[in-house]
């Protein structure tokens, strides 16, 4: 127990210090690398807190995809001159302390210990269609969270496409040719597909699920994109729009269907809950992976004339 507490204390100390390093490092590139290191150290904390689902999603999406996204911004971000109005350090400190004080007060006001919502979650697990409590919360008890979250993802993808610049500027955003060795993608991408399938299947009774699987699948796609092995499709393509909307539409259909039979919104029939959740999750994996891929502007290379896209073989 004391060894465990020592690990807890060390992690509790290291995490804010690493966070400070991310924020205070002047070099943007270093800051992003430190941010990814922070995410990986935090995975230990999730493990200590018995939160394997968070560990998987935070490592894959919060650290992996976000880190790659930030890194892909370095070329234009480094040349960016900061806004003319300089933030005042003392005001920033006061503001941060005020927000932290509010949050700390809120935490102190909470009851010290209690059963929380665990008994309620476990009590209804039998009729939820899955055996893993977190999946039951995400896809059954509080499935409106997940439904709206998918809508947020798709809305973000549409928003990003809306602010993309014209074709010439798009081409400048593309990663340089041969930025990653193609062999690496040959080795890793089949693994990513396999792991994604495993995670979504596993999600019914163990940590895993659509978001973990979607993130792993997207990671494979990002690798292909950067290795120039994947020819991305323009947003206008019907196939892309169809795949993008399949997840939200299926989810919405399942959500609305009970209303016709006199039930309630998002009420899953007990006998069908397991099958419906697996179907929703499987389709969501595709939607999530596509949206995460669309977050990378390199994909617009696909549009019509992109001669550079074919340069992939080493000389």
């Amino acid at each position: 127990m004391s060894a465990g507490l020592a690990i807890d204390a060390a992690l509790a100390l290291v995490l804010p210090v690493l966070a400070w390093a991310v924020v205070a490092t002047p070099d943007l590139r270093k800051a992003i690398v430190l941010f990814m290191a922070l995410g990986l150290v935090a995975a230990l904390a999730w493990a200590r807190l018995a939160a394997p689902d968070i560990a998987l999603v935070e490592a894959a999406i919060g650290t992996g995809v976000t880190g790659a996204l930030l890194m892909s911004c370095v070329p234009w971000a480094e040349s960016l001159t900061p806004a003319s109005r300089r933030a005042r350090a003392d005001l920033a400190l006061a503001g941060a302390l005020a927000v932290v004080a509010c949050l700390g007060w809120a935490i102190r006001a909470l009851p010290e210990a209690g059963p929380g919502l665990t008994p309620a979650v476990l009590g209804a697990l039998e009729v939820s269609g899955v055996e893993h409590p977190v999946t039951a919360v995400l896809l059954n008890y509080r499935s409106y969270d997940t439904l709206l979250e998918i809508v947020v993802l798709v809305a973000a993808a549409i928003g990003i496409d809306a602010v993309l610049p014209d074709d010439d500027a798009r081409r400048r955003l593309a990663p340089p040719a041969r930025s990653l060795v193609g062999v690496l993608s040959h080795l890793l991408v089949p693994g990513a597909v396999l792991v994604a399938g495993f995670l979504v299947w596993k999600g019914a009774h163990a940590p895993g699920g659509a978001f973990q699987a979607g993130a792993v699948l997207a990671a494979g796609g990002i690798l292909l994109l950067f290795a120039r092995r994947l020819r991305p499709v323009p947003f206008a393509a019907r196939a892309l729009r169809g795949a993008l909307l399949a997840g939200p539409l299926l989810f919405l259909g399942v959500a609305v269907a009970p209303l016709v039979r006199g039930g309630r919104l998002l009420e899953l029939p007990v006998a069908w809950a397991g099958v419906l959740i697996l179907a929703i999750e499987t389709v969501l994996v595709v939607t999530i992976a596509i949206v995460l891929l669309m977050f990378f502007p390199a994909r617009v290379l696909a549009s019509s004339r992109a001669p550079a896209a074919t340069v992939e073989d080493p000389p």
């Binding site: 939160a51 968070i54 919060g62 665990t118 008994p119 977190v134």
Partner: peptide, 23 residues
């Protein structure tokens, strides 16, 4: 904080939603 052996799954689900909205 939960006195049950496993942690409360509801905050975990909220965090998962938060991560995806965050990205």
């Amino acid at each position: 904080r939960a006195t049950t052996p496993a942690p409360d799954p509801v905050p975990h689900a909220l965090v998962l939603t938060g991560i995806v909205v965050g990205i």
